[in-house]
Structure formats: C-alpha cells, structure tokens
Design a protein around this nucleic acid. Structure first.
Length: 533
DNA sequence: GCCGTTTTCGGCCCGACTGTTTTCAGTCG
C-alpha cells in the first residue's frame, strides 16, 4: 500500500468512528496517526514495524494496526465501520462543509443516505430544522453538492495527457500508415477536460476503437481521408467561435493535408491549436501579430520550490542537484515562513541556517546557482509574515495567501494589493488560490491586482501545478500589456514536480506568452538584474 | 483508545472562521 492509501484509510477510520458516535478520543487516535504520517513527506510504506513505531506521535497500539494495514491491506476496524455505513453516507463526508457530526445528524435524523437525497433535502428546506444547521449551512451544502456534481467526469489535463499520447501511439503501431491527431479540448490543451477526441486519417482496416484506451474518459474517434487531415484537425480542435471568426465555412475546398495550409488559404497567420478559443486570436492573426509562443525548452530555471526545510520531500542539495541535472541555470528555494505551521514553516534561525547552507552549496556549483527565497504568507490584513529587515536578505520573495480564503472580492483584492506594495515582494504567488475541480479561488479584481503589480515591479506567478494553473491563462494577455512578467513556477515539493513547468508552459501558450515576458526564461544574469530592481 | 512518560494517568495539532448560538461546536487548511 502507498503512503496516500494508508493515510486515507486511517483518516476515514477516524471519521467513521465519529460518525458512529464512538469515543471521540478513540477516533482521534486514528486521525492523529493520519496527521503524523501525512507530515512525514517520505515513503514509509515499506518501512519495518520498528521504524514506524519510532515515528513521533505513534505508539505501540496504533503502530501494529498501521503495520497490519501496510502488509495485508486490511484494517479490520475500518472494514467493520464501512460495512455498517451506507456507501452514500460515506460519500456525504466528501461534501465541503460537512464533517462527521453533521453527516450523522443528516443520516440519523433526516434519514438521508446519499448525496442525491441530500440535495433533494436542501431543496425541500429540510436541513434548517436540524440543530446547528441554518439557512446558510443549507445553502452552502447545496452549492457544494452542485459544484461536485458539475465536476463529475471532468479531469485535469495532466491526468490524461500521457494516456492519450500512448493511445495515439498504439493506434499508430497497429496501422503504421495512419495519420493521428489529438483534437478537441485535449488538442487545445485546456486546463480541465470533459472529452477526449482523436482524429484518424487513412484507410482503417480494423476499428480503431478496439484499441484499449486506458483513459478514464470514453474516447471519441473521428475519421477522414488523408488529404483532408489538416481541414478536419482545425475543424475538430477549434471552438465554434474561432471557426466563425476565421471564416472556416467559406473555404471552397476541404483538401488541406496540413493545418498550416488551412490558415494560409484564409490569408491568416498560423494560429496554434492552443489558441483556437474564439477570443482575440483571429484579429491578431489578421495583423500578423501573434507572438512566437513560449516553449518548454525556453525555460532557464525554476523559481518557487520547497525542500525538507519546510514541507518538501527532498533536501536542499538533492533538489538543487536535480534541478541542475535537468539543464537549468538556477533554482529558487522558497520554503514556507513560520506562520505556515501546517507546513513546518521556517523560523528566522532556520532561515539563516538555510542561507548558510545555500552559500556553501553555491561555492561548488558551476554555471548554476541556488537563489535564496522565501514563500511568505500574506496575512489577513495584507502584511507579510516577516519584518522588512529580514525580507531584504532574500534574492526573491514569493508572497502568497494560504489561509482565510473566504474573503469577498473587495477585501481579497485590497489584501493582495497591500502585499504587492510591500517593497520586498518579488512575485505574487498563486493569486486566486483556486484548485481546479476542487475549490474555486477567492474572488479578486484581476485588473486592479495586475495594475498594482505593474506599478510596483512585482511579477506574476503562473503556478504550474496542474490543479492550480493560477493565474488563469485568460489574464496573461493583460499582464503582458501592463508589462508584468509571468513566472512559471512548479511550486515543487518533490524532484519529479519540476516537470509541472511543462504543464505551466502549455497553459501559458494559451495566454499567448512569449519568452521575453517570462521571468524564468531569463538567463541567471538577466534574472538577478530584474530581481534587484 | 492511545501517547508519553512523573511507568499512571492527564490530555489529545493549531488557529481561524462560520453559523449558530447566547458562549460554542464543527469544519477547514
């Protein structure tokens, strides 16, 4: 069993014990174990029982249960609890705003046994009769369920890409003579995917759909002749608004084997698939004004990453070495500040210690440098969780919000602007706090925030984690217009997460980012000059 | 129930927020 599965099982056990009104301290033992294990950030799934028992906060009793779970995949307590709980009631624990206590009330007092029934009960205004519930709780539960249902059968781009590429390869292998194209939302590299579409051109002997897709979504296959491949690639990749704007239906012929030929026939600059969203791309193409889009290879370094100093998995040296081995020129360490107690945030003493270690490591690097940074929390009032005389010791300061996420637009915007105005802020981190398919960000006035960045020389993060992709790509053109540079940051907590910058680059292309407006496409020397300003 | 340890028993991760209360329980990050 893997870390996550073990932690999830323990957490669920704790929740179900609360749901069944067992001794709250008994359930806490499980919840606490999950909490402790979750903080470890290393792979414990193949450790010995003795190793597990050495972990702080775990004793003999819970250790033996964890070890049993690890080796047999079974936790008898959990099995019993699951057995006496309707599956729909367990689902209800996943509704935001509902914990075990509230779910118990809904189940026992309203006999609600599934998320569907719960939504119905909200609509019938039945939740307000329960003690501890009111209008607002009922409305929040309703919204939360609707959000959940609305995201059913939607996936993050990153979760599908490899499977879809593999699928295209398999089809190609089965019949070498075919032309294969990924079209639709996947072709446009949208951040959230609802359907997978593949275009196949050529003579198909076997039904391509017999190839096992291995994707969690059904795949739509489209077929055409080879000499119309380009025509159908454009038709199936673009949204209707784009096709209208370029005058697609006025084309006299379908005989275009490449996409480039289609745009040439329409007397337009070539428009990359990512851009075919029906926004301003056609107007720009008409004036030959679409810039050369950034490529993954253009990135020269990685800013905003974490190490074991806070909540990262690998040490400073491991992360630095790995970043260098990937061919980058610099690696920015931005561990969490102390306010981030949830993430083992750094005290001032440990920051100093980290900076000394960085100085030591930098002496041995050639053509590579670790930059001293910090991810400073933006507090509720917009101030940063460090005094200025400490902030000035860093090469870069990423300021970002991690708590108190439920502000209204006016307050959240003012809070961000105050943080941007701090003279030591270099980059505004994940500006809306959104988690795609899981949580809407706090509402902000993007224009005001970007204007403030422009006025204060602050750069904008494009957090490249596939769940975040925050700032939203739709705002990148406005950033560029105002001269605010975009920093494609992996926010890496693990060596493998540097690769997230690839997904950041994909989404940045949708925002028409070119390399000269990308902070981490600068060389080390250029970057240092920029950061000093 | 379990942890840590004063090896027997007091106290369970923390701070903030929300919505419901009328002083706090439940939930979240």
């Amino acid at each position: 069993m893997e870390n996550d599965e073990i932690i999830e099982a323990l957490e669920l056990t704790g929740k179900l014990m609360d749901l069944h009104n067992e001794n709250p301290f008994k359930s806490k033992a499980y919840t606490n174990a999950a909490f402790r294990l979750n903080k470890l950030r290393y792979d414990f799934s193949n450790k010995s029982q003795n190793d597990i028992e050495q972990i702080e906060g775990l004793g003999k009793g819970i250790t033996s249960k964890i070890y049993g779970l690890m080796t047999t995949g079974d936790l008898p307590e959990l099995r019993d609890l699951v057995q006496k709980t309707p599956a729909g009631v367990i689902d209800m624990l996943g509704v935001k705003g509902l914990g075990p206590k509230k779910v118990r009330q809904l189940w026992q007092e309203l006999q609600v046994e599934s998320i569907g029934e719960l939504l119905y009960a909200c609509n019938e205004n039945r939740l307000v009769t329960l003690k501890g519930f009111g209008e607002k709780t009922q409305l929040q539960v309703k919204h939360s369920i609707e959000f959940k249902l609305g995201n059913k059968n939607k996936f993050h781009y990153a979760a599908l890409e490899q499977a879809v590429f593999n699928l295209a390869d398999e089809i190609k292998k089965a019949e070498e003579d075919l032309m294969i194209g990924v079209v639709g939302e996947m072709g446009r590299k949208c951040e959230v995917i609802e359907s997978v579409d593949i275009l196949i051109a050529g003579k198909v002997d076997a039904d391509a759909s017999t190839v096992d897709a291995h994707t969690p979504l059904p795949v739509n296959y489209h077929f055409c002749s080879k000499d119309e491949f380009g025509y159908h690639m454009v038709a199936l990749t673009a949204v209707a608004e784009h096709l209208d704007a370029i005058g697609f239906k006025d084309l006299q012929s379908r005989n275009f084997s490449t996409q480039e030929e289609v745009y040439a026939a329409l007397k337009l600059q070539y428009i990359e698939p990512e851009l075919r969203e029906g926004l301003k791309e056609t107007e720009l193409a008409r004036n030959n004004a679409i810039p050369k889009l950034i490529a993954f290879d253009d990135l020269k370094g990685s800013l905003h990453n974490h190490t074991t100093y806070s909540d990262g998995v690998h040490s400073l040296k491991e992360m630095g070495d790995h970043c260098q081995s990937l061919g980058y020129e610099y690696f920015g360490v931005c561990d969490h500040r102390k306010t981030a107690f949830y993430a083992n945030g750094l005290s001032i003493e440990r920051v100093m210690q980290q900076q000394e270690e960085i100085d030591g490591l930098n002496k041995n690097y050639k053509n590579f440098r670790i930059l001293k940074g910090i991810e400073s929390d933006i507090l509720g009032d917009g101030s940063l969780d460090y005094p200025n005389d400490v902030l000035k010791t860093f090469d870069l300061v990423v300021a970002s919000v991690h708590s108190n996420l439920k502000m209204n637009e006016e307050k959240a915007t003012a809070r961000l602007i105050k943080a941007i105005e701090n003279p030591y802020t270099s980059i505004l981190g994940h500006p809306t706090g959104r988690l795609l398919l899981a949580r809407n960000g706090y509402p902000i006035d993007h224009k005001k925030v970007i204007d403030a960045c422009a006025a204060n020389g602050v750069h904008m993060e494009l957090n490249a984690h596939p769940y975040r992709l925050d700032i939203d790509w739709r705002w990148i053109p406005y950033c560029i217009e105002k001269g605010v540079m975009i920093s494609i940051n992996p926010d890496a907590h693990h060596k493998d997460a540097f690769h997230d910058m690839y997904f950041g680059t994909c989404i940045a292309r949708k925002g028409m980012l070119d390399k000269k407006n990308c902070l981490n496409a600068l060389t080390l020397t250029e970057l240092l000059t920029k950061l000093k300003k």
